[in-house]
Amino acid sequence: MKILVDADACPKKVLQICMELGRRYAVAVWTVASFNHNIISDYHVVVGDNDQETDIKVLNLSEARDIIITQDWGLAAMVLGKKTRCISPAGREFRNDNIDFLLEERDMKAKLRRSGGKTKGPSKRTGEEDRRFQECLEAILGEGTKAT
């Protein structure tokens, strides 16, 4: 088991929580980001800045029982197929029973934007999201490991 972070757009607080919980539960934390980002991690993989390059690397590195951190719903759908657990930085766990709905929502919003419509962007990150993320990650880690 490892924690694998899609670090291109991951909030710093989420990375910090991953590192702290990874140490506590003796689980390696891997980060993947393009060379445009300055990420400090024990296991950091640098990729180019081509579209989807980070996602492809995360997908290729993921294995059953890993915990993937991403806000990319498409990547979440793919890694779920590899029997991983997947969490958004906001603390929402992507699961097989909710991913289809999320992908349909993403598709509808993309169609709206292509036709000239506007969709609401993400709101400012809150401490509540950090708390939810930490609780979700810790619950998953607690299921598969013992804290040190």
Rank of each mutant, 00 (worst) to 15 (best):
V79G: 04
V58P: 01
Q71H: 08
L4A: 00
L59F: 15
L61I: 05
K111I: 14
A26S: 10
G121M: 09
S88E: 11
A64L: 02
E93T: 06
S34C: 07
V58G: 01
K82E: 03
G121V: 07
F94M: 05
L112H: 07
E129G: 09
K13N: 10
I68D: 03
N38M: 15
R114V: 12
D66F: 06
I3W: 05
I39L: 09
P89S: 15
V47W: 08
E20G: 00
Q16A: 11
F35H: 10
G117Q: 03
N96G: 11
G117Y: 13
C86S: 05
A7Q: 07
T148R: 03
N38S: 08
R92M: 13
V5P: 01
L15C: 08
G121F: 12
T84F: 06
L15V: 04
A77Y: 03
L75A: 02
D55F: 08
R24Q: 14
E63D: 04
L80A: 14
F133H: 06
Y25D: 00
M108Y: 10
H44S: 12
R131C: 03
S88T: 12
E104D: 11
G74E: 15
L112T: 10
R131N: 10
A76I: 14
I140R: 00
P11N: 08
K120T: 13
I99R: 07
S62E: 09
E138T: 09
A110K: 15
Q52D: 12
N98F: 09
E135K: 13
D72K: 05
T126H: 05
C10Y: 04
G91Q: 05
R95V: 06
N36E: 14
R95F: 04
